[in-house]
Write a protein that binds this DNA or RNA. Structure first.
Ligand SMILES: [Zn+2]
Ligand SMILES: [Zn+2]
Ligand SMILES: [Zn+2]
Ligand SMILES: [Zn+2]
Lengths: 195, 195
DNA sequence: GTCAGAAATGTAATAACATAACATTCTGGT
DNA sequence: ACCAGAATGTTATGTTATTACATTTCTGAC
């Protein structure tokens, strides 16, 4: 199962993406399993993620409180990595500043419930695209647009698990993060210097 | 190529390790590619790492200055993850405190030269066990003893690369970290709660 | 409905990790 | 000796995360 959406049209623009204003349709030239910016209804995407979260928490007997739900909603605003202090700023208002522990506790809950993933190499967080089942995922992190594709290739995770076990290692958790350029940013290649 | 050494005898002790005082020999019962604590001459291990670093830097025309060498030496004191601020404390004396940029610049140099690896999930660093060639490695990180085994399975890294490319992703870097228990800590399993 | 305990949230302080900007010193080539 | 570039020193600050404790909210037993 995959989830990779483009919430904003890349300024540089995907060189070969099919863009027909007003007539949403799939891009035909991208090999990446993405939805075209114009085909992706992100409001619906957010709603789906939140509904799924509600459902899972109810089913598990844990509480998706307004605060936790709000944090999850903020994380789902884009398909880009979100930082804890971004959340603090976004949740704060003129008359009420949210303090770090508030956000970190919500993040902790969402991580425990598998509703988000932590991106270790960026100290950031991203919504999980298939939270119903426990899984070891591989994250493709674009340094061009900051967006993240979550893969769940059981063959890969099994191979890594096997390799670790063959060295007598008992695996708790796999952290697999691939840094690079997504298909929308790669064509522009030359102008996307290391970030 | 593998490098996994035990610098300190685990307090809990490997349940089934062969230990013959005074007569260093390989453990016969561990499946992990480790050296028995007693067979591992860590002074020699450090010396080897530093010599290799000297050789590579000379060959590449870069300067392994006393400071950089000193930082590398500290990182190699054990086979455990080292934190930047540990290094700051270890390098500081009564009459001279080392400041963060000093250490971070040395770490940056050592990372560029492939002499150390950064462990993203721990904000730590570890000596690279085969720095002569560029490589994508897999790190097995024990939560029991803090030691790290560096694997370099080209099959695994190729599989991950292929998977990413099949999604149109251009790979810069792979981060593969496996958290769990090493064979010396796993048998004691029950008493090693999550850290 | 009441109430006690548990869970969640609020708050203040601080720890841990990392970098920016600029000054000074060191090094190697001429 | 001189110069330019590399390396290091120094100050300040930015970023990420946790500890400890107070208060509020929720839940289930009665
Ligand atoms: Zn979306
Ligand atoms: Zn991109
Ligand atoms: Zn060693
Ligand atoms: Zn261990």
């Amino acid at each position: 199962m995959l989830c990779y959406y483009i919430s904003d049209i890349n300024p540089a623009g995907p060189a070969n993406a099919s863009v027909i204003l007003g007539a949403k349709r799939m891009s035909t030239t991208q090999t990446m399993s993405t939805l075209d910016p114009l085909t992706h209804d992100h409001d619906q995407c957010i709603a789906r993620a939140l509904d799924e979260a509600e459902r899972l928490c109810a089913q598990r007997g844990v509480r998706l409180t307004p605060l936790r739900r709000r944090v999850l909603e903020e994380i789902w605003q884009h398909h880009e990595v979100v930082k804890a202090y971004d959340l603090i700023h976004r949740l704060s208002t003129e008359d009420h500043t949210v303090k770090p522990p508030t956000v970190y506790r919500a993040l902790e809950f969402l991580l425990e419930q598998g509703l988000i993933h932590r991106i270790e190499s960026l100290n950031g967080y991203i919504g999980c695209s298939h939270p119903a089942l426990a899984h070891q995922c591989q994250l493709l992190i674009c340094r061009g647009c900051g967006q993240v594709e979550e893969l769940d290739d059981p063959t890969l995770s099994a191979a890594l698990q096997r390799e670790a076990e063959s060295h007598g290692f008992r695996v708790d958790q796999q952290i697999v993060e691939v840094r690079g350029l997504c298909p929308h940013c790669a064509p522009a290649g030359a102008d996307v210097s290391a970030r």
